[in-house]
Design a protein around this nucleic acid. Structure first.
Length: 719
RNA sequence: GAGCUUGUAACUCAGCUUGGAUAGAGUGUUGGCCUUCUAAGCCAAAAGUCGAGGGUUCGAAUCCCUCCAAGCUCGCCA
């Protein structure tokens, strides 16, 4: 705003023989000055304080009323920082501020506000959520959804045409045993009487339990343990496993401690130590698993007894691992119509349940892409065949295909795509990438390469964002080298991993395998109920009666839906995605401690003023006003903040961090609340001031509404 | 062992891209403010070795190096 003064100040400094180029900065408070510069920067050998005092006496620039110095406390032997603070004369300042105000509020009140067109005509794809279709969406999945949806909204704000995709992993091993369980239940005449995904989550937990127990028992023979050929871990079996593992663990520990006694171990010994440690960890894990599933069996049996018994009876008649493997193969290769339709039945039911839940969170998809379709298209096999001829393909001596890239491959990637070191999550050796199993079936990586190519070819996007947890950083990066090799440098460049960290719940462990999680639906429902309680309490204080007609109920529910969205979405987006969050559900549900509803409240307050102005005074806000009447440092701060939305949107896109939008909204709401207390609007000194202030309120209201819209949170006119 | 991420107030986190005054918010604590446009609000106070050490610089939470701690990854799982 005051950048005009940069040139005369620099000119003056140069004139008196100081070779520098200073930039104006803002002092911490306007009382100190309107802008300032640091003297130390160019003081050289001269004492900065003396130089500053000299400048105070001599500098004379049109429009500047007063120049003063400020020196910070010197630390240890270091000199303090000396500032030169400039104060404008009142008239110049008023003029500059008014014209800045006028220009910006005109933009803020226009339809263009918050819509950048830097990427007009370009397309982007955001793939997000992509949860396994085997259990209900939980709060962790919703963090993915909310980040993906917000990212899509940010991209749209910069001009992209955005497509939202959900990748359905319907060919996984886990899906297979869920399908086996589903078939057993179906044949037994069981009908899900609760929401399908929640019911299926129970089937998954139970089937996973049987599957794991069978896997554990399959090792027993090698260990010399006598077992019953069933899907239960009996007490005597657990005892046998325990004593087997304890012996092994003790043995390994002994070996380990002997090696660790060596003062200067040889390289060979160090290697053995590491191997033994890994082995020890594995043994302990395996031992714990036996105990855990012994318990899980009873736990699931007591929680879901009817379903459990039916599945247990059904599974006892078959070899689960064998059947599961056959089903998996049959579906992947599309060789058995009955099995294919079973998989489809389960997957489509779950997806419609997902859509219902996501809809409540204001999240929608343009397209669901099925892993099975990718497999059936034959594209993964074509790609593997091509890459098998690559100079980097390792000979495995069987049907397997394994790529081993040298370090130089990364340099080539950076050169051809313009990616920088920051985009590369590895240093040194590139881990091998297996595309096909030795039995000839395609691995996930191959399908992912095929899927990426397909996404680029279908919609011709400039960029694709895959919203996937940070755990997958390496596999996501590993897609790029084969893409480059297949001749798609532009795809390798445009494929981006939007990495986010997982969610922990305070005091509530989550485990899909135990069917223990806070589901997305439960999170929504609890919040909705709590928001009704809070609203009724607040209404009671204002002597507003509870709804009595269907219309009033519908209206209240609409408001509560909005508040629920703010309360659930905001805490999932207000922290940078790279930060692991511990979600305190109680805090999210407490509206006084959740900034989401606070922002909505600010918006509703602004709307209240605008409504009253219209009803009582018949005044509408506009962008033509005598701004000089209300311009001051404080009001200007708000306008400045509002005008920064473009930069904020661009920054959030560049840094892949929607939290900056959340923070921007929250700060705006805070600024408004203070403005609200400081300046009465409808009781302004005169009508012109009222009109001008009302327009500021309108600008704030639009700002908050825009910010909330980017966050996918509705702005309501009442709360 | 290697790579990535994180470490800032009692708690949850901004600030680091582009170095600059007394390091900011919210929550919690303490004390005020409803006859005035919605108190889901406002005002005030207390609370910090910016993980540790070193370096670069006139100046470091910010840039560089080393170390420490936590999480994740390093599968013919997806």
């Amino acid at each position: 705003m005051y950048s005009y003064f940069e040139k005369p100040i620099n000119d003056y400094l140069n004139k008196i023989g100081i070779d520098t180029e200073v930039q104006l900065m803002s002092p911490p408070s306007v009382e100190l000055g309107d802008f300032c510069i640091v003297i130390n920067k160019f003081a050289g050998k001269e004492d900065p304080e003396e130089l500053a005092n000299k400048l105070v006496d001599t500098i004379d620039i049109e429009g500047i009323d007063k120049v003063s110095t400020f020196t910070t406390k010197a630390k240890k032997k270091k000199k303090g920082i000396v500032y030169l603070n400039f104060k404008l004369d009142e008239k110049s300042k008023k003029n500059i501020q008014t014209s800045f105000f006028e220009k910006n509020i005109k933009y803020i009140l226009s339809k263009k506000y918050g819509h950048l067109n830097v990427n007009n005509g370009k397309t982007a794809i955001v793939e997000h959520t992509s949860a396994n279709p085997i259990s209900p969406l939980h709060v962790g999945n919703i963090r993915n959804s909310v980040h993906g949806d917000t990212l899509a909204r940010i991209l749209e704000r910069t001009g992209y045409r955005v497509y939202r995709h959900f990748y359905v992993n319907d060919v996984g091993l886990q899906v297979s045993f869920v399908v086996v369980g589903y078939e057993i239940a179906k044949n037994a005449g069981v009908k899900p009487v609760i929401k399908f995904d929640i019911w299926l989550g129970q089937v998954y937990a139970i089937m996973n339990c049987f599957y794991t127990i069978q896997t554990i028992k399959s090792k027993a023979e090698n260990y010399g343990i006598n077992i019953k050929d069933d899907y239960k871990l009996h007490n005597n079996e657990v005892l046998q496993f325990n004593s087997y593992y304890e012996l092994k663990i003790k043995d390994t520990k002994t070996k380990l401690s002997e090696l660790e006694k060596i003062e200067k171990p040889a390289r060979e010994d160090k290697k053995t130590i590491r191997e033994l440690k890994t082995k020890l960890k594995k043994l302990i894990d395996e031992k714990n698993e036996v105990g855990k599933y012994h318990q899980t069996f009873d736990d699931l049996k007591s929680r879901f007894s009817d379903l459990f018994d039916i599945l247990y009876t059904g599974v006892s008649k078959i070899d689960l691992i064998e059947v599961q493997t056959n089903y998996h193969k049959a579906y992947e290769k599309k060789t058995d119509e009955r099995i294919v339709s079973l998989f489809k039945e389960v997957t489509l039911w779950v997806l419609s349940a997902f859509e219902w839940t996501l809809n409540r969170y204001n999240i929608h998809f343009d397209q669901f892409d099925f892993e099975s379709d990718i497999s059936w298209s034959g594209l993964p096999d074509n790609i593997i065949d091509k890459l098998a001829k690559s100079e980097y393909a390792k000979d495995t001596g069987d049907l397997g295909v394994r790529l081993q890239y040298p370090k130089e491959a990364i340099n080539k990637l950076m050169k051809e795509t313009g990616l920088t070191k920051k985009d590369i999550p590895i240093k040194g050796e590139v881990p091998d990438l297996q595309l096909r199993r030795s039995n000839g079936t395609a691995l996930y990586a191959a399908k992912d390469i095929a899927y990426s190519i397909k996404k680029f070819e279908d919609k011709d996007p400039e960029v694709i964002y895959n919203v996937i947890s940070t755990e997958q950083s390496l596999p996501q990066f590993q897609l790029l080298l084969p893409l480059l090799e297949l001749g798609y440098p532009q795809y390798a460049k445009g494929l981006k991993h939007y990495a986010y960290e997982l969610v922990d719940l305070l005091g509530r462990p989550m485990s899909g395998r135990m069917a223990a999680y806070v589901t997305a639906d439960a999170f929504y429902d609890e919040t909705f109920i709590r928001s009704r309680m809070a609203k009724r309490e607040s209404d009671g204080k204002r002597e507003i009666t509870p709804p009595s007609s269907p219309e009033e109920w519908a209206n209240e529910n609409r408001i509560l839906h909005s508040v629920t969205l703010a309360s659930t979405r905001y805490p999932l987006i207000d922290k940078s995605p790279t930060r692991r969050i511990v979600l305190d559900i109680d805090q999210a549900l407490d509206f006084r401690r959740n900034p989401g509803p606070f922002i909505q409240y600010a918006h509703a307050r602004a709307c209240g003023i605008l409504r009253n102005a219209m009803e009582q005074k018949k005044i509408k806000p506009g962008w033509k006003n005598n701004w000089e009447l209300i311009v001051d440092d404080y009001t200007l701060e708000i306008i400045k903040h509002l005008a920064e939305i473009d930069d904020t949107i661009l920054r959030s896109r560049k840094n892949l961090d929607p939290a900056v939008i959340a923070t921007w909204c929250f700060q705006l709401a805070q600024m408004f609340m203070k403005f609200y207390e400081k300046y009465p609007v409808l009781k302004s000194e005169n009508k012109d001031i009222m009109k001008a202030r009302l327009s500021v309120i309108k600008a704030i209201q639009m700002g908050i509404a825009t910010g909330l819209d980017i966050l996918g949170i509705p702005a309501t006119d009442r709360l």
